[in-house]
Design a protein around this nucleic acid. Structure first.
Lengths: 104, 104
DNA sequence: TGTATATATGAACATATCATCATATATTGG
DNA sequence: CCAATATATGATGATATGTTCATATATACA
């Protein structure tokens, strides 16, 4: 797998720019970072997320919808309970790189 | 049924959370992405950035201040001209990972 | 059925963000 | 000093964002 080298004279196309900025926007909010970080290794129900992070149920639900739209999380139903988990290893990897970087 | 509140073993400390979210916020705007992408391999003056990306001088200056505050860019003076360049290889690496990811 | 539980949704509000405009500052050369 | 050039700054306004509240939906089960 070789990588394309992008020269400075070549602008990013509209679509790439949009996807990249949307993705980083998703990671640019403390609440979403906490949720994603929690879902890193384990699935959680909405209420469990709310309880673990001390957030309102509605807040968590709204943010999960945001993350789900970007396909950063997925869910699985069990009765009335929805178990959410991370769904984009690459982006989760970016997040953890940034966390490691920030800690040093 | 109440559950034990999980001790925040996996929780991020306030400072890390702030730094990470700030960093991703910086990368979450198309204009800043374009600027950083331009500064990837080469230094540019403010006016050259504005011209290359078709942006207003003031817009570029404001965004450069933002990026400078986060130490993502640095500058060097030559007369009245300020040459900006990227100053955080790790974050630039994250950006390019995301760009590559978005392109596929 | 009907109630309880889990989650989603929409409206409303406060705040943050970004581009633009006008102007200020700083450096150089005459 | 003054003019020209490059950049920075502050104010403004439009739009985006995030949380909260109230309510709706969906599922399970008696």
């Amino acid at each position: 797998m070789e990588k394309e080298v992008q020269t400075n004279t070549h602008e990013l196309d509209e679509e790439t720019l949009f996807v990249v900025s949307q993705t980083f926007k998703a990671l640019g909010d403390p609440t979403r970072i906490r949720i994603l970080n929690l879902l890193c290794c384990e699935e959680y129900s909405v209420n469990d997320i709310a309880e673990a992070l001390n957030l309102g149920q509605s807040t968590v639900s709204h943010q999960l919808r945001f993350l789900k739209n970007l396909r950063l999380v997925k869910f699985r139903r069990e009765g009335t309970t929805l178990y959410y988990s991370s769904d984009d290893d690459h982006i989760m990897n970016l997040l953890h790189q940034a966390i490691d970087h920030a800690k040093h």
